[in-house]
Amino acid sequence: MNKLKANRKQTGVALISVLMIIAIVVVIAASMTSRLQLQIQRQQNIQQQTQAFWYAMAAEQFSRVLLARSLAGEKTVNLNQDWALQGAAFPVDNGTISGEIKDLRSCFNLNALQNNSGEANRATVEFNTAQKAFQRLLELKLPDLTMPAEYLTARIADWLDEDSLLMTSGSAEEDDYASLVYPYYTANTLMVSPSELRVILDITPADYQALAPYICVIPEDSRLLVNVNTLNEESAILLAALIPALTEEAAIEILKDRPEDGFTTIEEITASPQLADAEVPEDVKNMLVFTSEYFMLTATTAYLESGFVLTSVLRKNDNNKIKVLARRFGDHG
């Protein structure tokens, strides 16, 4: 009798042990299945993102060909050419490709604010033509900046120049940035992206977003050249900023009277009724151009559930070859 009870007890223990083993195996199997599903989903995401990336690279190559064909033999760069077509979108396998090409001579090149005067006493240095134009742009379009337009102009100039001397009393240099809670130094060189503006002392996100439509950065180029043939109604303010005698409305009227294939001489602009009684300084005339060699492509692609944004800075060489100067991945707005 006791032997029978012992056998039953041993059988019960064995059954419990088997059930525990089965439970452990089920938990392990469920965990492995969950991890496997996660790995599969991760791999699918990577594959989709990679395909979206290559769609963007294809858009870049197409844009290079389009620019080369559109500008071959042309004396001007204007909005009537094929490259300037906006809102183009193309269906591809399981996705779409859309892109927009912008002339970087139709926005304000922040690198033009670099101060190269070489003066030791920056407190007495006057703004150059580009800096005056930028200050006027801020005063006309951004009256609600968190700082005076003169201060922001000087702070960008001091961010770009090679010394550590303040340009004006409202500017900022290395010591000002080094004393912050999270310190850093000024770049003391040209910008590579307009997003660098966000690290200028006291610039707020609202300031940056308000200024973003009018600014750009051309790598390794500190000139301010404005292509009057690619300005539109929104960017006409650049013309008014360069020529103080012009209002924004008058600048828009000049652009409305622009020939279909663009202006070809500065005399066509100065002869307009809006400038009949105004004297355009010679240095400003030299900043008004009718062609461009720098462009920016913003390509947006989608593949299944993944998306990709590529921003490429393109340059047209003298032999009409289009070269990629820089690429940025993701939305940097």
Results as ranks from 00 to 15, higher is better:
residue 145 L to W: 02
residue 273 P to A: 07
residue 299 A to I: 12
residue 119 E to W: 00
residue 81 Q to P: 08
residue 237 I to Y: 05
residue 216 C to K: 07
residue 34 S to Q: 14
residue 275 L to G: 05
residue 297 L to K: 09
residue 183 P to R: 00
residue 181 V to D: 13
residue 118 G to S: 12
residue 233 E to I: 11
residue 328 R to Q: 13
residue 281 P to A: 05
residue 170 G to S: 01
residue 119 E to A: 15
residue 281 P to E: 08
residue 294 Y to Q: 10
residue 312 S to C: 05
residue 159 W to V: 08
residue 134 F to S: 03
residue 146 T to N: 14
residue 293 E to N: 14
residue 160 L to Q: 08
residue 294 Y to G: 01
residue 106 S to N: 08
residue 169 S to T: 10
residue 97 I to A: 12
residue 65 V to Q: 13
residue 31 S to K: 10
residue 260 E to T: 15
residue 1 M to G: 10
residue 273 P to Y: 11
residue 29 A to C: 05
residue 15 L to W: 06
residue 215 I to N: 07
residue 255 L to P: 01
residue 6 A to Y: 02
residue 225 L to S: 08
residue 152 L to D: 00
residue 75 K to Q: 13
residue 45 N to K: 05
residue 85 L to K: 15
residue 87 G to R: 13
residue 323 K to R: 13
residue 278 A to C: 07
residue 160 L to G: 03
residue 9 K to R: 14
residue 175 D to C: 00
residue 41 Q to F: 04
residue 135 Q to H: 01
residue 142 L to K: 02
residue 122 R to D: 00
residue 72 A to F: 08
residue 17 S to I: 12
residue 128 N to L: 06
residue 101 I to A: 08
residue 311 T to Q: 14
residue 318 D to F: 00
residue 130 A to P: 01
residue 275 L to C: 03
residue 49 Q to E: 12
residue 269 I to G: 06
residue 132 K to I: 09
residue 26 V to S: 14
residue 51 Q to G: 04
residue 149 A to C: 03
residue 214 Y to S: 08
residue 302 A to T: 15
residue 316 K to P: 00
residue 244 P to M: 08
residue 10 Q to Y: 11
residue 44 Q to N: 11
residue 61 Q to V: 10
residue 299 A to M: 11
residue 71 L to G: 06
residue 115 N to S: 11
residue 148 P to I: 06
residue 284 V to E: 04
residue 253 E to C: 02
residue 274 Q to M: 13
residue 240 A to G: 06
residue 21 I to Y: 02
residue 18 V to Y: 04
residue 61 Q to S: 14
residue 32 M to P: 00
residue 213 P to M: 05
residue 304 L to E: 14
residue 53 F to Q: 12
residue 169 S to K: 13
residue 221 D to Q: 12
residue 71 L to Y: 03
residue 154 A to T: 04
residue 100 E to L: 11
residue 236 A to G: 05
residue 320 N to D: 14
residue 145 L to H: 01
residue 308 F to E: 10
residue 63 S to F: 04
residue 99 G to D: 10
residue 289 V to D: 06
residue 188 N to G: 02
residue 276 A to Y: 01
residue 297 L to H: 09
residue 232 N to Y: 00
residue 255 L to M: 08
residue 282 E to T: 08
residue 282 E to P: 00
residue 220 E to D: 13
residue 11 T to Y: 09
residue 216 C to Y: 03
residue 177 Y to E: 02
residue 276 A to W: 01
residue 287 M to P: 01
residue 159 W to N: 11
residue 172 A to V: 02
residue 202 D to T: 05
residue 46 I to P: 00
residue 249 E to L: 03
residue 3 K to C: 06
residue 302 A to R: 12
residue 284 V to N: 01
residue 117 S to F: 02
residue 248 E to V: 14
residue 297 L to E: 07
residue 143 P to G: 04
residue 2 N to I: 15
residue 172 A to T: 05
residue 23 A to W: 09
residue 142 L to H: 09
residue 234 E to V: 06
residue 141 K to C: 03
residue 174 E to L: 03
residue 104 L to D: 04
residue 227 N to D: 01
residue 16 I to M: 14
residue 331 D to H: 01
residue 263 F to N: 11
residue 44 Q to R: 13
residue 232 N to K: 07
residue 172 A to F: 04
residue 34 S to N: 12
residue 98 S to W: 04
residue 13 V to H: 08
residue 37 Q to G: 00
residue 65 V to G: 01
residue 53 F to N: 10
residue 324 V to S: 07
residue 176 D to C: 05
residue 4 L to R: 14
